[in-house]
């Protein structure tokens, strides 16, 4: 007898899987955070953007985030202390020491810093905070972490490790929500099909986000038109990946569309196109850590069995991988 939608929802969220995908996400996001905070700290920009005008910053900060207010305001000492704590938490998250706690501390510190001066942030702040919250909910330190090493000392022969899969599903959902939302808000006549598709060309000419003068792109205008259309379709169509993933998960069932989707490896195509898009943005534009954080979230699109070789390669320079025996699971 088939189950109702609620029972299926409960069942979906009860699934467990090997921990490598979430562990890979944890390491990549931790590295992104080191860059996100470190690049502000080591260029001296922090004192300009987050410190109140009364203590050397440029802006009289208005309503402060609760953490900054609780610590006494946006002074150099408070902001400097938060940056040091943030860098420590980022390192701690990367190596998987108190993983959930590190993610939570990093989230609160990062939000406190970013919200102190909302004029100096962007959508990457929102993407980072959402991803960190999902790492608070996830057991991302179950393998390849100091946490796992500590647990292994207590239990030398533990059963194969599995973790709840639903936080990974939520990361996928967040990524697709971001794409769909930004795509639907690209309402300029130069973005949408039927227009002149000049959006990307002119965005590349905006001095704020340029790495270099982009007038050399003029002869490539038709290519930028193609990229404009491709970007818009990719973003607006991103939610359809849920259907692709569902058909991948239920690949044993009959159906022509399912068979075609799996034969064309549409999920792999999505990953390749998405990563290429973000790499292009990172090369051509200065938009902070946005591209790197977005690419880090793609770890959630990998099944743990696919993430495992990547994760092992990432840990290889650090000697014997600090991971317990992880389960081989079959859920997509």
């Amino acid at each position: 007898m088939s189950r109702g939608p609620w029972a299926r929802w409960v069942g979906l969220l009860s699934a467990r899987e090997a921990p490598e995908s979430l562990a890979l996400l944890r390491v990549l996001l931790g590295l992104c955070m080191l860059h996100a905070i470190g690049s502000v700290a080591f260029t001296g920009t922090w004192a300009l953007v987050w410190v109140d005008a009364s203590d050397g910053g440029y802006k009289e900060m208005g309503e402060l985030p609760w953490l900054v207010a609780a610590l006494g305001g946006a002074s150099r000492a408070v902001i400097g202390g938060l940056i040091a704590a943030g860098l420590t938490a980022a390192i701690s998250l990367t190596v998987g020491l108190f993983s959930r706690l590190s993610a939570f501390a990093l989230l609160q510190i990062f939000m406190a810093l970013g919200d102190t001066n909302p004029h100096t942030g962007g959508s990457y702040d929102v993407l980072i905070s959402n991803a960190l919250w999902l790492l608070v909910l996830a057991d991302s330190g179950a393998t390849g972490s100091v946490d796992a090493r500590i647990r292994a000392r207590w239990r030398p022969s533990p059963p194969p490790i599995t973790v709840p899969a639903w936080p990974r599903y939520l990361v996928i959902g967040q990524l697709l929500t971001m794409y769909a939302s930004t795509g639907l808000q690209k309402v300029s006549a130069s973005w949408v099909p039927g227009g002149d598709l000049s959006a990307l060309y002119y965005i590349l000419q905006q001095p704020t986000w340029q790495r270099i003068d982009m007038r050399w792109a003029a002869p490539l205008f038709p290519l930028t038109q193609l990229a404009t259309l491709g970007t818009w379709l990719f973003e607006v169509g991103a939610p359809s990946l849920l259907l692709v993933l569902w058909m991948r998960r239920t690949r044993a069932r009959p159906g022509r569309l399912r068979a075609l989707s799996n034969r064309l490896r549409l999920r792999d195509l999505f990953i390749v196109v998405g990563l290429a898009m973000h790499a292009g943005i990172a090369i051509l534009m200065e938009v902070g850590p946005f591209s790197f954080v977005s690419m880090a979230l793609y770890a959630a699109l990998l099944h743990p069995d696919e993430a495992r070789p990547l994760f092992d390669r990432l840990l290889r320079p650090f000697g014997r991988a600090p991971r317990g025996k992880t389960a081989q699971t079959g859920q997509d």
Partner: peptide, 20 residues
């Protein structure tokens, strides 16, 4: 408090009259 704000208005339109 959980950092789950959703704000994805990224490059909604090219700025044809930018300023430096």
């Amino acid at each position: 408090y959980a950092g789950t704000t959703q704000s994805w208005r990224m490059f909604v339109a090219p700025h044809r009259y930018p300023a430096r």
